[in-house]
Amino acid sequence: MILFSRVALIIALAVSFCTASVAETILTVQVKNTGQANKTTQFSRKELLDLGQITLTTANDFVDGTPSFEGPLMRDLISAVSGQHTTVARLFAENDYIVEIPTHDFLDYDVVLALSQDGKRLSLRDMGPIWLIYPMSDHPELADPSYNNRLIWQLVRVELE
């Protein structure tokens, strides 16, 4: 009986740990100055995956070759938080790096919030968990330092204004 109770406790703890792991917030999105109260939405990896995945195969200055990046489109994330009327996105990295991007970029290009690269989940060590990727191979005009600076990695927070 005691053995059964201990096994049940271990299983309960394991499930609890797994659930907590899955639901861990990896991205916070805040919509500001839209005429209503600021709205903050938190996304776990699963919730980001649920936005729909696309695969973007492209090169950039920080990788070798042309790897494939998988993740949701940035414009889908903006739609999910009702931030379509915003004009500027301010993105924050884990190390407090900040970059401001006009939101029309996300309409003009398929900008992806990459969660994995070549099928491998992005860790902090691999510029993850979220790396903003522009389709540079498909659009030569993006091969410019001003767009390089927008490839923010280790993304943790987005403010939309």
Partner: peptide, 13 residues
């Protein structure tokens, strides 16, 4: 981990 990622910057791209 972040330090490791910065080291990797000098090994790729």
């Amino acid at each position: 981990e972040i330090l490791w990622s910065r080291v990797k910057l000098f090994q790729t791209g």
